[in-house]
Design a protein around this nucleic acid. Structure first.
Lengths: 229, 229
DNA sequence: AGTAAAAAATGATATTAATCAGCTTTAAAA
DNA sequence: TTTTAAAGCTGATTAATATCATTTTTTACT
């Protein structure tokens, strides 16, 4: 349980910053962010923004996990990414001039800071370190998504699940993977029932352990082999 | 057949530039590009760059079409994008610090200019118009790929084919769509045989006409309906 | 024009994964 | 602590699409 009474996060002492695009900024730059940002506590399953609305700024994730997802024509979610501590969320739409093409929603309790669009775009203009970091990040993600598309098109559900678990292993780091079966299915791109059956297989093969809804990877090598890389 | 003897393209008179990220640059900026670029004629099916190699610069497509694709673990191509006249190709890898995650190859005869990495990065630093254009483009593509992933995960092959034909209708503009069945299958993300059968269905339903390998869309509305938008 | 190679097309079959229906367990709320 | 709802799970069936084998057509080359 996060402490709601201490929801203000100070950038200069923010533990998540070392993993963030603000990691390499100087003190002046950080104190500017500090001035311009606001902080908020989010409950589980609260939206940060939704597809097709227009962006008002960017979110900086201090604590917790956030899912980024698009909805297909029948409303089914496709999870594109799961953001963890330190990530800046929603900056794509700052530059595209388009409305959001994805939605973002907390997966657990979160502390999240917010920087308004104008302030953020000003930072980008004047702060080359941040700007280059953002460009690098946009580019990396674009590459990752080419791989994602290829996986979706060519891998079996079993292979995609292995791939997904490897990614989630990184996102959840030392913690256990903590998603509903439905969210996990929506990340892998399959039906919930199929996902459940495959998890069972993986468990029987000694690849994962299932602690009710939480998943623990116990054979990463096998997963890597299965994912086909 | 392109005229190979006139392969030098002059930026200031380049017809493709109006559709490009260089469209809004001033004369000084264009003449700088003019100085720094080189031009080349490419035959059909010639690679511009391949996955996992390191980028040496960016390509600017003056004439022709280029496919951008990733290879899955069994070597099968997944076409991510088909670039047309005016597009700058390969700039993602300029910023990511990673090797290429995709390959690029001509689909027909092309005239393509090249700007070396250092020159290009200098332009990005000093030319805010170009830089903002690039950031906007990176962002747009990132959004498009979220949609692409969702389509792959949730739509049937039939729906994806409809979607693909709509995209290709734009890419080929007034011309007929001119791809091998295999390339089209690799764009849709299906087996070539399945694609061929579906094309036949679409033809029988009066949606397209097939002129040997070239495809003509004759009922765009129906396609849009099928694609589910 | 004639030949070889590549691309396109067709048919039969196998496989994967979705769907549907029902049941059980876990978590949340009264 | 009981009740209710949500999430998780299982089995049977169906549908979509891949795969394999073969034939036909088109394109490129001598």
């Amino acid at each position: 349980m996060l402490d709601k009474s201490h929801k203000h996060v100070t950038c200069s002492t923010c533990g998540a910053r070392k993993n963030s695009l603000f990691a390499n900024n100087c003190e002046n730059e950080i104190s500017l962010v500090e001035e311009q940002k606001t902080c908020a506590y989010y409950k589980k399953n609260q939206p940060l923004f939704i597809e097709s609305s227009f962006p008002r700024g960017v979110f900086c994730l201090n604590q917790g996990k956030v899912k980024i997802f698009a909805r297909g024509d029948e409303g089914k979610e496709q999870i594109i990414h799961i953001a963890k501590e330190g990530e800046i969320i929603g900056f794509r739409a700052m530059f595209s001039g388009e409305p959001y093409k994805v939605s973002a929603s907390t997966l657990e309790e979160c502390n999240i800071c917010f920087i308004g669009k104008e302030d953020f775009l000003n930072m980008i203009e004047t702060n080359a370190t941040l700007r280059n970091g953002i460009m690098k990040e946009l580019s990396k993600e674009l590459g990752d998504r080419a791989v994602f598309i290829t996986n979706m098109a060519q891998k079996s559900v079993r292979e995609r699940l292995a791939f997904a678990l490897l990614i989630l292993g990184d996102v959840y780091d030392k913690e256990e993977i903590n998603l509903t079966r439905e969210d996990l299915a929506n990340f892998v791109g399959t039906a919930t029932e199929t996902l459940i059956r495959l998890l069972k297989d993986f468990k029987e093969e000694g690849i994962i352990e299932i602690h009710t809804r939480k998943l623990e990877i116990i054979n990463k090598d096998k997963l890597m082999h299965l994912a086909g890389k």
